[in-house]
């Protein structure tokens, strides 16, 4: 407990010290103050540690939370819920349950076997990859609270509504036969024996794993951002992806489907698009489409779902993302 308090304090002190440190570092370099190069350097030197620190903090916290919400516990929580409330709960649990797309199929089968309604299972499967801690931490660090909050809220809304719609479509018959023939499984939860110290270890392990994996993307993203910050004139992309271009949103969603990247990999692209004057709704629609609708994941899911159900899944989620893109562009 004491350790946690100390670590949190240290984190905040570091975070607050970043801006003056970056200023000092730039001043110490042999570049002209106030020049474009100095601007770019300061942006890079300030943003890189800031984003990495935010990411480490959020991943640490989520790693500890994740250690409580095992897939088994989440399933037990969801097995007792009907539709509606269940969709909301499933989407929320999608944020806090550890999830890797390579486990999508066993998880899907585990949920269905325990009697979790199909629509609620989809709410979970949509929310888990799309609304994840890496995406949120990066958006928070690079684009601020407003963009991160909107992404969180809209991502949840898409997961809840899409899952509910898929539930209404009553497509249980479109599961592959061997999945339906699986015997019922009880949603039991093993006794949780982790201590706080164990959870801290789990948190650090996930920081090592995730930050270790995504830092090159973040550096690339910030370098792109820094270059644009100093040099590239704005409004270059505005002609193609600006707010007035009605077909920009559907095109972004379509482009996003065959692309497959995790939240970290897509950030440099998002940074570049936004900085060049693309509309926020269009860019967020693109990001959601890349993360939530990917061909490889559909190929994996094809093992348990018949094509009709996959088509329904893609159609419903793509529609949700389209609506989000348009609403965003209209409101902001």
């Amino acid at each position: 407990m004491l350790f946690l308090a100390a670590a949190t304090t240290l984190w905040f002190v570091l975070y607050l010290a970043l801006a003056p440190l970056a200023d000092t570092a730039v001043a110490a370099l042999p570049v002209e103050g106030g020049s474009r190069l100095a601007e770019s350097l300061r942006f890079f030197l300030y943003d890189t540690p800031k984003v990495l620190l935010l990411l480490a903090g959020v991943v640490m916290l989520m790693g500890m939370v994740n250690s409580w919400f095992t897939p088994e516990r989440t399933r037990a929580l969801l097995a007792r819920r009907g539709e509606g409330v269940g969709n909301v709960l499933a989407a929320l649990l999608g944020i806090v349950t550890p999830f890797c797309s390579c486990s999508a199929v066993p998880l899907f089968i585990g949920f269905v076997r325990a009697g979790v309604p199909l629509g609620n299972t989809f709410s979970f499967l949509i929310s888990a990859p799309m609304v994840n801690e890496v995406a949120l931490a990066l958006l928070l660090g690079m684009f601020g609270v407003r963009v991160a909050g909107l992404y969180l809220g809209l991502g949840l809304a898409i997961a809840i509504v899409s899952g509910w719609v898929i539930g209404r479509l009553k497509m249980e018959g479109s599961l592959e036969d061997w999945v339906r023939e699986m015997p019922h499984a009880d949603a039991t939860v093993g006794h949780d024996t982790l201590t706080l110290a164990d959870r801290i270890d789990v948190g650090f392990a996930s920081v090592r794993e995730i930050v270790g994996k995504v830092w090159p993307y973040i550096l690339a993203g910030i370098a792109v951002g820094a270059a644009i910050h100093g040099y590239v004139p704005e409004a270059l992309m505005a002609r193609f992806m600006g707010r007035d271009v009605w077909w920009a949103v559907p095109l972004s969603v379509l482009l996003g489907v065959p692309m497959y990247a995790n939240a970290a990999g897509i950030i440099p692209v998002v940074e570049a698009l936004l900085a060049k004057g693309a509309a926020l709704g269009t860019v967020l629609a693109f990001m959601m489409s890349v993360i939530a609708l990917s061909l490889p994941e559909m190929i994996i899911l094809r093992k348990v779902l018949k094509p009709r159900l996959i088509a329904a899944f893609v159609g419903v989620v793509a529609t949700g993302i389209l609506v989000v893109g348009y609403v965003f562009n209209a409101v902001l």
Partner: peptide
């Protein structure tokens, strides 16, 4: 094979089974 993995009622891979008992799942 997904079908075989699912029979062990494991929801997160990798899972480990020793002498027929699931001892680990996830990571």
């Amino acid at each position: 094979k997904m079908e075989d993995i699912a029979r062990f009622n494991v929801m997160a891979t990798p899972g480990v089974v020793i002498d027929g008992v699931v001892v680990h799942s996830g990571g």
